[in-house]
Design a protein around this nucleic acid. Sequence first.
DNA 1: CATGAATGAGAGTTCATTCAT
DNA 2: GATGAATGAACTCTCATTCAT
Lengths: 203, 203, 203, 203
Amino acid sequence: MGITSRKEREKEEMRRLILDAALRLFREKGFDGVSIRNIAEAIEYSPATIYLYYKDKSEIYFALQFEAAALKRDHLLPAAAFEDPWQRLIEFGRRYIDFGMKHPDLYDLLFIIRSPMESIENQDCWKLGIATHAFFVETVQACVDARHFKSTDTETIAYTLWCHAHGLVSLFIRERMRMYPEEKRAELAKRSFDMIVKMAESL
Amino acid sequence: MGITSRKEREKEEMRRLILDAALRLFREKGFDGVSIRNIAEAIEYSPATIYLYYKDKSEIYFALQFEAAALKRDHLLPAAAFEDPWQRLIEFGRRYIDFGMKHPDLYDLLFIIRSPMESIENQDCWKLGIATHAFFVETVQACVDARHFKSTDTETIAYTLWCHAHGLVSLFIRERMRMYPEEKRAELAKRSFDMIVKMAESL
Amino acid sequence: MGITSRKEREKEEMRRLILDAALRLFREKGFDGVSIRNIAEAIEYSPATIYLYYKDKSEIYFALQFEAAALKRDHLLPAAAFEDPWQRLIEFGRRYIDFGMKHPDLYDLLFIIRSPMESIENQDCWKLGIATHAFFVETVQACVDARHFKSTDTETIAYTLWCHAHGLVSLFIRERMRMYPEEKRAELAKRSFDMIVKMAESL
Amino acid sequence: MGITSRKEREKEEMRRLILDAALRLFREKGFDGVSIRNIAEAIEYSPATIYLYYKDKSEIYFALQFEAAALKRDHLLPAAAFEDPWQRLIEFGRRYIDFGMKHPDLYDLLFIIRSPMESIENQDCWKLGIATHAFFVETVQACVDARHFKSTDTETIAYTLWCHAHGLVSLFIRERMRMYPEEKRAELAKRSFDMIVKMAESL
DNA sequence: CATGAATGAGAGTTCATTCAT
DNA sequence: GATGAATGAACTCTCATTCAT
């Protein structure tokens, strides 16, 4: 078992190495701009070596999507610590946007990129995403249960808040805010978040 | 003149053919995923023929973007007919979302696709977009002037509403609403629009 | 006959137009760098029109080679005016080098470029070249007859002088004189010509 | 070490294969007339393979030029053994011409072919050429110092001799001696060399 | 386990050339 | 007589991928 597990561990480390490099490169040059060769060079292995760990390029893609989903979950999870559902919801939103701003490529991967036909592999990723989304909806539900809103249409409330957050992040990371001077964008996003919170309060 | 105009027309038809094919392909596979060859095959011409009508790949892209911007403006413009700014704003929002739903590829092109560094050529397109955006902001301003909102932060109000609308459309057209059954999605979008309108009223 | 000859004349003018443009372009961008399209644009006709006057690209090439040969002959011919064979020879040499310096592309065409298999067409050109060369050899012979040299090996004398002149011109136009500062090259060439003349005197 | 060196050797052999094919093609069709595909076909490999050994087309060109320069130096160097500067000079000239006749493609590459703007890479080649040229000029200078010529214009003497040698070789290898029967050409060249030597003696 | 070597396929683009009008 | 439209073939170069070692 010792040997087997060490091998397992080494294999895992190698996958890590590949994914980290891939992720960094995707960040820099976009998904289409990165080649297997680029990744191989980045980790100082030969291109052929990559294929020992991932069947093909799209498997790397799926693995990354899973990574992204996990990272996102980890980024959002601390919101669960807030006992008050309303505070929890706010924190969740703040963290959601923060995640998108800090990891634009991951966000892109999860919510914008048109994926190359989702095979079975990324079902795990999908489950993760579902779970995180469920946590979000439950939080909204908790607010509803706590009579925080006049409206009781949990589904629509959750969806509406999501639309706003997603719109905010994706306009930003796909560079559609050029009519606003660069240095004002972050602040505008911040003000908009505060505003939607206010708006939600009077729902 | 007869011959000239027929030739002109035929040339125009060919450009149409190219643009339509290109548009469909761009949306399916993204800008980088589409090759001149692909487009040529789609319209059953040789690759070289494309170059008789468009200088290079990005010129096709710019032509499409310009068309999309013009179509969008035409789609939104009727909102200007409403005299009451608040009604005008609502109509504008409704039409914005409607445009995105009806012409997902055009919306994609304008607000989602990662473009090849926009050179001077598509300034026209850019101006068009700016103008339409300005109309939107002015409408919000008119509402503010009419004391429709408690808040007077026009910029943030406009931006927040835009975020919601863009988020709604882009989650839809980039298929990130799979957790909702297909037949419910349109209705959910509708309810969300109504909700944001309500929320805005109490701004 | 009037109509026919006018048509003939017009056809000739068009050929002139094409050749002149081609020549200018070859000068600027080299033979390989020029396309039929380039030539067509230069004379503001369509590429297809060129084909009404020349069967294909290499026919233009051959026509140009003939042009070059004729131009060269015209450039050298005035040397014939000198009655003294020695003066005639010197003048011939001077003019030969002058031609190469003033029309590097023509010289290139005639003496350096590896031609695309010489078909029957450029036989005319070949004859012209032969004739000019014969004139040169005859001049040398005249010097020999006039006991200008001790040596009587006309063939070798002519060939040796030609080698020098050709070497001088071709090192210059194929840019192999970079070890000499640009501004000194012309003068060096001049001094070398004077030197070979001197050397020939003591042959 | 065995394996490594064998691999090294194989790699070197492949480069040889490419360079040999390229050299032959360049000389037949000129630099612009040769495509990577041509070279690949000649050695019966795929075009992509070429890129494993040379970054691009001009790197092949530079590699060849460097080789040619080195070979030429090696061919000329033995002349240095002659102590008497005049004998040294004669031997140098003889070897220069001999090199051109024996390796027409290399000579072509070095002194005739129109090269793709030489970047920094082939500086080595350039230096080699400069050095060999310097050796030549020094030899002429030594003759001058030894009062071998009446003229003391070393630069012009060297240049004039070079012109003759270059003209002789390049008329030959670019096939501009067709007016002389094939079997007489070599002898004519020989006689011309002897003649220029004589002429130089009386300088 | 890792890789060097190789390649087919395909990218954008340009070219000489043809042909119906 | 002139041309607009079209194309097959070629260009340089990169990519994902395979396979023998």
